[in-house]
């Protein structure tokens, strides 16, 4: 016993080292579970408010660019309004009144500001200045006027943390718009401008410039949200799939204002999928 104690005492530095490293490994492994909560209640508010303050200062330097983006989006929305038919030519259509207007609303958008965003790590995250108080829940999709940004991973009262599309563990169901074929968009971890489109077979003709959008195969994103455009495409070594390089439409380096997508029928959709597991995959 005495020998054991003296052994422990002699190598106490090493054992302390092991102890600390074990704590760290535990933290890393726990954090690795990307769909689950990551930041603790106690620290979330402090980290969030420091992020918000430093973002407030940084905001002034990008005002011009943000203004341009918002103006462009306003113009786009205005043109959408104008393209709606206001005067029906056929008088019959005047009587086509929807019974319940809530039926026609499937997705609701909650505007939020990005207070923290990283793009140079291998697994990037972002933080929004709105949380559960504004109706944001874990698992919701995030987009901006240019396209898909990521998913919400964890929420607190006034802040939400999201997994960026620039995360090697965040695959997103995608569709090649011209052929309609499904694939998966996954970031490789190096260049924040490009991602890889996987699982498209070589019989599909994919050309540079083709549009890649979200598929309707998930309850997170509405279909046909822009993801990016094809830059290059070549069959892989075994000729089973295509290696498709996609230029992302969102400029992650200057992410400022985003929309959180609330799917009103998510529960319904998910419970149906869970009760009939064949549909998954």
């Amino acid at each position: 016993m005495g020998q054991l104690l003296s052994f422990l005492y002699r190598f106490r530095a090493f054992f302390t080292f092991l102890l600390f490293e074990l704590i760290c490994v535990w933290l890393i492994v726990r954090h690795n579970d990307y769909q689950r909560s990551s930041f603790s209640n106690a620290t979330a508010d402090v980290v969030g408010s420091v992020n918000e303050t430093s973002d407030n200062i940084a905001d002034y330097f990008s005002l011009k660019k943000v203004n341009k983006e918002l103006a462009a989006e306003n113009a786009r929305l205005r043109s959408l309004i104008l393209s709606e038919e206001t005067f029906p030519i056929d008088s019959l259509s005047q009587f086509l009144i929807e019974e319940d207007t809530t039926d026609s609303v499937h997705f609701e958008l909650i505007p939020a500001e990005v207070v923290r965003n990283s793009i140079r790590n291998v697994n990037n995250f972002f933080m929004l200045n709105k949380g559960s108080n504004d109706g944001i829940e874990a698992g919701m999709g995030v987009m901006n006027s240019l396209g898909v940004v990521g998913k919400i991973r964890d929420v607190r009262g006034n802040f939400a943390q999201g997994i960026s599309l620039l995360n090697t563990r965040n695959p997103i169901s995608a569709r090649h718009q011209i052929s309609g074929r499904m694939g998966t968009i996954l970031w490789e971890g190096t260049n924040p401008k490009y991602a890889q489109l996987q699982y498209l077979t070589p019989d599909v003709q994919v050309l540079p410039g083709d549009t890649i959008v979200t598929s309707s195969f998930n309850s997170i994103f509405p279909k046909d949200i822009m993801l990016g455009t094809v830059v290059s495409s070549a069959p892989d070594r075994n000729n089973t799939y295509l290696n498709i390089q996609v230029e992302l439409s969102v400029d992650f380096g200057s992410l400022s204002y985003v929309y959180v997508i609330k799917n009103i029928y998510k529960e319904e959709q998910d419970s149906l999928i869970n009760s009939t597991p064949m549909i998954q995959q």
Binding site: E21, C24, F39, Q161
Partner: peptide, 17 residues
Amino acid sequence: IDLFYQTTGIHASAAVF
């Protein structure tokens, strides 16, 4: 540092080492 870099544990393990 980890809390702010959103890399829980990675910097800590390196610094302890």
